[in-house]
Design a protein around this nucleic acid. Sequence first.
DNA 1: GCTCAGGCTCTTTTT
DNA 2: GAGCCTGAGC
Length: 701
Amino acid sequence: MASNELGGTQTQASRDYLDELNPEQRCAVEFGMEDATGGGPLLIIAGAGTGKTQTLAYRLAHLLVRGADARRVLLMTFSRRAARELEHRVGKIVQQVLNLDAGTGHLTLPWCGTFHGIGARLLREYATRVGLDASFTILDRADSVDLMGIVRYQQGYSETERRFPSKASCLSIYSRAVNSREPLQVLLDGAYPWCSTWKSALDELFAAYVAQKQAQHILDYDDLLLYWAHMMEDPELGGEIGARFDHVLVDEYQDTNALQSDIVHALRPSGHGVTVVGDDAQSIYSFRSATVRNILDFAQHYQPAAARVSLARNYRSSPQILSACNAVIGLAKEGFEKRLWSDRAATPPAEIVEVGDETDQAQYVARSILERRETGMALRNQAVLFRTSSHSALLEIELARRDIPFVKYGGLRFLEAAHIKDVLSLLRWADNPHHGLAATRVAQLLPGVGPATASRIAGAAASGDMLAALDRLEIAESLRAPWDELRRVLRRLSKGAARWPLAIGEAIEWYLPHLERIYDDARVRRIDLEDLARMAALHGTRERFLTEMTLDPPEAVGDEAGAPYKDDDFLVLSTIHSAKGREWRAVSVLNVVDGCIPSDMATGTIAEIEEERRLLYVAMTRARDHLSLVVPRRFYIHQQSDKGDRHVYAQRSRFVPDALLPHFALSAWLPTVPLASSSVPKPNVAPIDLAEKVRRSWERN
DNA sequence: GCTCAGGCTCTTTTT
DNA sequence: GAGCCTGAGC
């Protein structure tokens, strides 16, 4: 697109647009520009709110303005949302600098996306050269767990007396091993000591899991990186892929794992044209094998060492909020020493609010959100963050009760609902006849078909011409009608026959009778299917729809689906992980107590606890003008099988010890006394103010 | 070979 | 409260 026009259009007028940057940012943007290759490796340490995206966008724009070819720039971000935003910002800057009018068309960076997304693209392109089927299907996490479960069962590890790790544990061990590139025994001893004795059994299990994936022409998330890394290790192919790019930029480098850093290093072994950006204090993805060592050791990886620029001026938060953030991260054990500073206008200090229990917490938060809204702060400028998706359950009820619209990020996804997976499985099976996992899932929807029949059906489908093979298959007479229906829809969906997006309508139409039969709440689920159909229409082909739904699933409940709601004002609820890179004027953090932050699932090792500390830091640094940490004193514990529900007293999070309290304003909040307990007449009660009551009836409460 | 009931375990964060 | 495994009954 615009890249062609960019070559040679370098102008003098473009110099002063860098004046908007502060000296450190400018240094990062201009680094190595005297060199046609963009200079040696560069590490940008960008603290929270220091204009990281801005700096990266300017550096990219600067490269393009000075003649770099947009098609030869590889930009990897953590999420698709971040990729889109960067692309948009770069386009705007370039357009302004070169005085292109809006009609010139938007600049596109064709190689801009997540590691997994870029990996998938390269693998499809090089599939035939590396022995893959170019129409491979990508397995999402839940499907990977299911496949691991099947293999686990086939290998005979599911007999209970042997107490073998669960399918989910098996997959997470496998995934950790792949992404960290650690030998299995080392990984087990370090992170899964209770599984250490299963080393050789796990070796066998994983070998079978890999064989199954290959037989079914499917890749899981880890494979997208693993096969890519393997391609890079081949001298010829690796060189060829590396030579396609002049510049490699990686955002959120603190959250990359060993496999990803190997890929980056292999793309450009000399480090020329490599820029990585990140903040070690915000590393929160070690459960996905991300290692903060990548960023801590990046500079020394090269000879001579990579240049390093640190951004410490914070543009986001008020000095009061920042001092609380700095205090919390100041207690961390390791990291680049840096203190963020801000000269924004003063605000009241960050708050710690004690409430009675989680019910009070929900009331307090809902109420304070409405109060701020009354002062003119729109709901969309406010967010509520929490460690675990379920922590917001009570608040969601309270918000619904008060008619406060919200969107929730993180946690259970749309795609994980059984009825969505059923329909997607049908499409995936039609797309990839070898996909036994999808095939067995679909076949078992037919009443009277269980695992045995389903696996016969899947086996037949994988052998050559799927439709002919299924026609030949012997199926019990009692299954005749549903079996005919299934083959009919498969024929209509088969490659070539299916027009997109009409095909999804056919798939849903076939599925509806099964939906009605299986679920009591079929009507609600049917609405989800309508949403799915709408999303499908936004993608050009079936293959792209299936790939993108897996790699970039709709992030929020209600996201994408409800276009008419887009203009509405709504509150954001989000897990802290999903809040990365975002900011709001007011942020409330729920359950700032030990057991939630840090999660009691993550207090085993010092490294885990340190990561939980960074998690709280990430949550706090999202706030611009208002921050409150909510501390419920009493907790109801459900799901403790033996004694039933009980409640426990919680301590304020260990990450905010008494010594840090001077950085906060402390308060306690009590719910308004319920009417019943105040109904005893008190002396000197004021007369009932009916006028007040009438006025109040117009207030939103 | 399919389905359903009953007893067991585990419970986070996500591309 | 859900998911997993087993075993009884059809």
